[in-house]
Write a protein that binds this DNA or RNA. Structure first.
Lengths: 199, 199
DNA sequence: ATAATTTCTTAAACCAGATTAAGTGAATGG
DNA sequence: CCATTCACTTAATCTGGTTTAAGAAATTAT
């Protein structure tokens, strides 16, 4: 059960959970290993599960109108990730949830998640709170996407995902902040040339 | 209590609520009238309350890096609205929540909302569900903002807020879809000239 | 090791949408 | 009821970021 320690610990940062309750919770989760480039569920399938990342990194992405990849979210260790629209309505998925490295996750199905909310009400509180926080984060990001120049968006990425900046290929960062890989490269070389410090 | 009918009815679209439970719920809400241009709370104050719109329209907006207004959300009848970041953490607000017409709302404070979640667990479920749905909507909107051309974003606005298209000044629609008022005007006249039909 | 592939950089031409400016019409207020 | 402000349009010019293309560097597979 050692692999569940990180999960319990993470949940306990937001709601209280006795050891007995933790024992109730654990069997709801299944462990899964994903190889680099492997997807959490097949393209177009329903996202049955939400994943809690133990180790590695996942990303959610889709093609935009012009056929470019756009990254919605990254998920390093102790983040939750899925195609939320598909997961909450159990409808076919529009997004790809893909491992960027060999990755270990814990999975829980929507059905089991809703069951768990009835058995352990604080779990519903936990997910309500992290959903509220995620909503705030997306509101801020939308505001940035519309009103802030690309360099500000790059800085915001660096603050949000400090562990990823020098770990994942730069083109995925570009697809997250919403610029072409060429332009991100140009921005970074301008920062260096000017000797500017980020943040 | 007639003014609470719309609230009860709206909640019952997602969770069950007996008449007795509805009677418990109602005293938690206070009614408030806002004049056109009036704000839900003073600039920089904490958003103590979340508002349920009975009649009229509110909008949430802030200035971007270049000093332009950016509209995050509109709320016509039966929508919920507040500065969510400020509301959930009870920290000073970054956003303006402002009436676009004379508007009637029901208010509940964060404190009372959390109390209510303990008294009526299905209310926590209700807010979890609408928060999940709002999160999905913001994910889609972010994807659009980054990858779709301005005309697509205008169409998406028209679908999302059909009651507002011919009701609010066009410059606020521009500030929502993320273009200058001049460019929205140009797009619309091009649609007309080409005799294209939206949607 | 070496070949094959992927990623990153640089630079020129290009474009969607911003900015500026000027004029017109519609609300609003005193 | 007039004056002022606010909302919308049109058009010229400008700009942040894209596209295209080509080469260099780093990974990955053989």
């Amino acid at each position: 059960m050692k692999e569940n320690d990180l999960l319990i610990q993470t949940i306990r940062q937001r709601v209280s959970l006795s050891n007995d309750e933790a024992q109730i919770l654990c069997p709801f989760f299944r462990r899964k290993s994903l190889n680099k480039k492997e997807k959490l569920f097949p393209n177009g399938a329903v996202a049955h599960d939400v994943a809690f990342v133990l180790d590695g990194v996942l990303r959610v992405w889709a093609y935009d109108a012009e056929g470019h990849e756009r990254t919605l979210q990254f998920a390093p260790t102790d983040w939750w990730i899925t195609d939320l629209a598909s997961f909450i309505k159990q409808t076919p998925s529009d997004w790809h949830v893909e491992a960027m490295e060999n990755t270990e996750v814990l999975l829980i199905s929507r059905e089991d998640q809703l069951k768990l909310f009835e058995i352990l009400p604080q779990l519903q509180t936990y997910f309500r709170v992290i959903t509220e926080n995620a909503l705030v984060a997306y509101q801020q990001r939308l505001q940035e996407a519309m009103g802030a120049p690309a360099l500000e968006r790059y800085k915001a990425f660096c603050l949000k995902y400090p562990t990823l900046v020098d770990r994942i290929p730069q083109k995925y960062i570009a697809s997250y902040i919403g610029v072409s890989p060429e332009f991100l490269s140009k921005m970074k070389s301008e920062i260096l040339r000017a000797g500017k410090k980020l943040i």
